Amino acid sequence: MNRTLRISLVAGALMVAAAVAAKVITPTARLAQLRAPLVLDTAIPVRFGDWRQETELTAQVINPEAAGALAEIYTQTLSRNYINRDGERIMLSIAYGADQTSGLQLHYPEVCYPAQGFNLASATKGTLQTHQGTLRVKRLRTSLGARVEPVTYWTTMADKVVLGGYDTKFAQLSYGLRGQIPDGLIFRVSSISNDAPHAFKVQEDFVRQMADALPVQVRTRFIGTPD
C-alpha cells in the first residue's frame, strides 16, 4: 500500500470517527419537555411581601431587544411594574427560552442596552442575598437621555445561574455531554433613579421577597440553586 493511499484511508477513518462522535454527543433531550411547563404569567405572583403589581404605568419597562429578536429567541416574555408601600417602583422583565443551544442562547443586557442607544456606565459582578442562599448577579448603570436606570440581572440555564460566556459555554457542554438541551431565562429588575446604590438596595429587597413567594416547584428555574 503506497503512502498516499494510507494517508487517504487514515483521513477517511478520522472523518468517520468524528462524524460518529458528533452524532453520539449531539444533545437531543429537551429539558423543557421533560419538566413541568413553565408559565411566567402565573408563576410570578402579582403581590408578595411589600410589593404589588402597579397597573397604572408610570414608568415604561423598556426591553432593549427588537420585537423580532424576542420572538425568535424566547419562548415567553413577561414585563411588569411593581410598587411597594413606600412608593418605590421596580420594573421587572423576564425572558424564557426553551432551547439554549448556541444559536438561540440568551442575550445579555450589557450588549443589548448599548445596541438600543443606552449609555452603559458600568457593569459589575456581585452577589445578592436571598433566604435560599447567595445569588450571583450583574449590576449595570445605564442611561438614555435623562432616564437613569440601574439594572440588576442574572441568567439561568436549567437550574444553574450563568453569568457571561464562560459560564454559559461550560453549562452547555455539561448538559450536552448528557445528551440534554437546557432551557434558560434572563431575570432583570431595574428602576428609574439617580441614586444607584439605593436603587440596587431596593432591587435586592424586591428579589429577596419575590424569591420567597415563588412556587417551590419552580423556584430553582428562576434563581438557580443558590450557593
Rank of each mutant, 00 (worst) to 15 (best):
E110L: 03
C112Y: 05
C112F: 01
Y113V: 05
P114L: 08
P114I: 07
P114H: 09
P114C: 08
Q116V: 04
G117Q: 07
N119F: 12
N119L: 12
L120S: 11
L120C: 09
A121C: 05
A121I: 11
A121T: 14
S122F: 01
A123N: 13
K125E: 15
K125F: 11
T127E: 14
Q129C: 01
T130K: 05
Q132H: 13
G133V: 09
L135M: 09
L135C: 07
R136G: 08
R136Y: 10
V137G: 08
K138S: 14
K138G: 08
R139K: 15
S143P: 02
L144P: 00
L144V: 02
G145D: 03
R147Q: 08
R147F: 11
V148C: 00
E149M: 13
P150V: 06
W154Y: 02
W154A: 03
T156W: 02
T156S: 07
A158Y: 10
A158M: 03
D159N: 12
K160H: 11
K160R: 15
V161D: 05
V162P: 03
L163E: 01
L163D: 02
G164W: 06
G164Q: 03
Y166A: 06
D167E: 04
T168I: 06
T168V: 05
T168Q: 10
F170W: 03
F170G: 00
A171R: 06
A171F: 01
A171D: 00
L173P: 00
S174W: 11
S174G: 12
S174F: 05
Y175T: 01
G176L: 00
R178P: 00
G179S: 05
G179M: 04
Q180L: 12
D183I: 10
G184A: 10
G184V: 08
L185A: 12
F187H: 12
F187P: 10
R188Q: 12
S191W: 00
I192C: 05
I192E: 13
I192D: 11
N194Q: 15
N194Y: 13
D195P: 12
A196C: 04
A196F: 10
A196D: 15
P197M: 07
A199N: 13
E204C: 06
E204Q: 15
F206W: 14
F206S: 10
R208T: 15
R208P: 05
R208E: 14
R208S: 15
Q209P: 05
Q209N: 08
Q209I: 11
M210G: 09
M210P: 09
M210I: 13
A211Q: 05
A211S: 15
D212Q: 12
A213T: 03
A213C: 08
P215I: 09
P215G: 10
